[in-house]
Design a protein around this nucleic acid. Structure first.
Lengths: 257, 257
DNA sequence: CTTAGAATGCGTCGTTATGACACAATGCTA
DNA sequence: TAGCATTGTGTCATAACGACGCATTCTAAG
């Protein structure tokens, strides 16, 4: 079964197996070489890059569908995945463009085809450990790769807007959750953690205050090892103290009355 | 056109006019006599009270649909309305119960009727000024009234869960937004505002610290009037300074790096 | 081998925000 | 007119936060 065949199969049979009107799109964040990355796919039927997304099987939970899409695209099972917004404008997609795109691929689609119907899409964002990901194009895509957050141009349909909303949400959550756990390898240095925050927030932070605040949360374990090999003083390695981490999450980290 | 007739019409024609698979439910909060209230409806076809909800017309934006439902139920146009979560479990509703409920109403529904299909529902919460609301049952409901947040028992389907999630969201947002603007009348006293916060957060707050913090936001105007008639010292009346209010909202009130 | 450069570990200081509480002022009621 | 509950305002100690200094450690250049 070639991907191309599956692609055509999905196009032909989708109406029977998927929940109508509903789709989902995933904003998959990774962190690599001090840059925040997003996983995008190049759909066959469009000129633009797009967020990996999919449809919901008729008997499938929405969250399970998102988990499935993520697994398919990244190979990772157990990751941080969170629904953040529903995009429900009546004119989200441009049907004429869709049709002509499919035509370019040599696929003729009738005017009442289910893919041309209106969809309301649920946005999920995921935080994944970059090194663990095996990028995998889906059957309808010809490519799948990480993009630097700052180098992303126009995207398919309203996907750019979805991405921006995911980033906004991530920035808000950052003040409440020690997000780093999901984006960094198990062992990491304080400068790496700081760079992650700086990248997401798009601003520089004071090195010493950052360290004080982070350690103040009480969810980090400083290991006895250091990261040698850099051109300068070797920084300590840290890892998250899962017991305290979970405990802190339950209460919320700061803020509140 | 009686409501009953409209009800039957909707049941008959819904498949043609609504977006399939998608519904929305509104958690409408109000504040009255120092109690947080939620507007619930008693659907004809069920024994339980339910959140006011509805479906999305085929050419209607999701947000517009929510605004429409709200307008129909409360008579209010321009209110604070925010999407907060999508509920997408495959087994959200119990079809057998639905059918038997309709049967009780004397309405026979075939096993493939659109109302028995699976729906993914988008939760919205609204903050409204209690006194401005004219509660209005919709065509499928026999009653519509305010419930004290603490006196709500079991609800229709997963609506209790939706309500809880709305409350959680409201509590989170409370730390970022001066929610009071939408729930209180234009003029209000500091004790009233405090009571609102205490009710939502379900905890008592120090009177003096609360006042310091609230005024510290710089979004309140203290009026020259006081609220006479109480049995004690007359408290000052306040109102929101909309210019500063909007400005503050843009930046987020506190927290953050 | 030595040293310069650069990054890290650790601490200080003044300011601001926060929590706990005291006391005076006000307005109804008895 | 006195009593009392409630509101307005202020104080104080402590914690949190932002800005910054200085010593330490590692690599690489000389």
């Amino acid at each position: 079964m070639t991907p191309q065949k599956t692609f055509r199969e999905v196009i032909a049979d989708g109406e029977g197996i998927f929940q109508p009107s509903v789709s989902l799109d995933c904003v998959i964040f990774g962190f690599h070489e001090n840059e925040l990355k997003v996983l995008l796919i190049k759909a066959k039927a469009t000129d633009h890059w797009a967020l990996p997304g999919g449809f919901v099987f008729k008997e499938e939970d929405l969250d399970d569908a998102a988990t499935r899409v993520l697994k398919e695209r990244t190979g990772i099972d157990d990751i941080f995945l969170q629904q953040f917004h529903v995009f429900g404008s009546a004119n989200r997609s441009d049907w004429n463009i869709h049709r002509s795109n499919f035509k370019k691929e040599g696929i003729e689609i009738g005017p009442n085809h289910w893919l041309l119907k209106r969809f309301i899409t649920v946005g999920y964002y995921a935080l994944v450990e970059f090194a663990h990901v095996i990028t995998t194009p889906d059957s309808s895509s010809e490519d799948c790769k990480w993009w630097d957050i700052n180098e992303i141009g126009e995207l398919f349909m309203d996907h750019k807007q979805i991405l921006e909303k995911a980033l906004d949400t991530l920035r808000l959550q950052l003040n409440h959750l020690p997000i780093g756990y999901n984006l960094l390898p198990q062992k990491f240095t304080m400068p790496e953690l700081q760079k992650l925050y700086e990248t997401i927030l798009n601003k520089t932070l004071d090195r010493r205050n950052f360290q004080r605040r982070m350690t103040g949360f009480g969810i980090l374990k400083r290991l006895k090892e250091t990261r040698k090999g850099g051109a300068h003083r070797a920084p300590f390695l840290y890892s998250f103290d899962m017991r305290k981490y979970r405990k802190a999450l339950k209460q919320g980290l700061h803020g509140g009355w």
